[in-house]
């Protein structure tokens, strides 16, 4: 016997019967919801310490209010403009270089017909993703040292005459940070695009073959447009994360002489919050960062909605 309710569209039912109807599904989602509330929403209460002078030995409620003093201090801090410059500099470089490369990589990888070769390349390309930055940082420091891999190569090929201390040059730091990160994450970042590509209907390619399209044309006119929704969503997320630099990476690669190029917001928060125990001030910086990220996210989402028709919400 079939349940007659199956034939009525869900949205026409009352909330109560809709919940009842989907009770098993909702029940399955419950643990995740509880997890989110406990670990993501409840801790948000702590944001108010940005407007207080919090000491760890008192409760948050007992700490005195200080209004916007923490924010005022942040914007008048001597290092603030340098920190913003580095954060935005590294963020934009990563967006312009680190964002398109995995897409291009995925497109070309998709064109490789030999399955074994394709899989080998894919595996090799995402191997570095699994090395933690703490370990990789040590390796990078060796590679970039005066007797390291890069100097060896550049000297042997005659590009430079004497070894350079790459990590001691502030002007090289952005490049080191961005390119080492791109190298580490290229293969991993391509996975989502490869997944999107594999979802494209083969019928489209067959029709294009019948119409006489070559591989380049198929790539440009079928593969690209088909993964555009994924690209848009990823771009929106990437833009909102522009102020979030790779903390582990920069922490291990920064040093006394390159700090004018390596001090970014996350490092600043760590230095002030953990090393100087100024939780309120660190929270204020962090809140500022979150608000900027939210604005960027909404802005990018809106633009994408208007121009592309794809958006997160």
């Amino acid at each position: 016997m079939r349940n007659h309710m199956d034939q009525i569209p869900l949205r026409k039912l009352s909330l109560k019967s809709r919940i009842y109807h989907q009770r098993y599904l909702l029940f399955m989602a419950l643990p995740a919801l509880v997890w989110m509330i406990v670990f993501n929403y409840i801790p948000m209460y702590g944001i108010i310490i940005a407007f207080k002078r919090y000491r760890i030995i008192k409760s948050i409620a007992d700490s005195p209010w200080v209004g916007l003093a923490n924010f005022k201090e942040l914007f008048t801090e001597g290092d603030f403009s340098m920190v913003m410059k580095n954060t935005l500099g590294i963020g934009f470089m990563r967006l312009f270089i680190g964002f398109p490369l995995p897409i291009i990589f995925a497109l070309f990888l998709n064109e490789i017909k030999h399955a074994g070769f394709k899989r080998t390349i894919q595996t090799i390309s995402y191997l570095p993703h699994f090395i933690s930055w703490v370990v990789l940082g040590g390796i990078m420091m060796n590679w970039l040292s005066d007797a390291g891999l890069f100097n060896e190569i550049l000297m042997k090929t005659g590009i430079i005459d004497e070894p350079r201390f790459f990590l001691a040059e502030p002007e090289s730091f952005w490049n080191i940070a961005v390119f080492s990160d791109v190298w580490k994450e290229l293969g991993w970042g391509a996975i989502i695009y490869l997944a999107a590509i594999s979802g494209i209907s083969p019928a489209l390619y067959e029709a294009a073959t019948v119409d006489g399209a070559n591989r380049w044309q198929k790539m440009m006119h079928i593969t690209m447009p088909s993964i555009m929704p994924t690209v848009s969503i990823m771009l929106i997320l990437a833009i909102s994360g522009i102020l979030t630099t790779n903390f582990d990476q920069i922490l291990v690669l920064r040093n006394a002489v390159n700090q004018s190029a390596s001090d970014v917001i996350d490092i600043f928060v760590y230095r002030v919050g953990f090393k100087m125990n100024r939780f309120s001030y660190a929270q204020a910086i962090s809140l500022f960062k979150s608000v900027v990220a939210l604005i960027l996210l909404l802005g990018a989402n809106q633009i994408s909605k208007k121009t592309q028709g794809h958006s997160l919400f």
Partner: peptide
């Protein structure tokens, strides 16, 4: 309607923990 329910739920939890923190 659904949003409202979630809001009420979240608020309830919020106040519950706030009192826990204070005590």
């Amino acid at each position: 309607m659904k949003n409202k329910l979630i809001n009420v739920f979240a608020l309830a939890i919020f106040f519950l923990t706030a009192t826990l923190f204070a005590g």
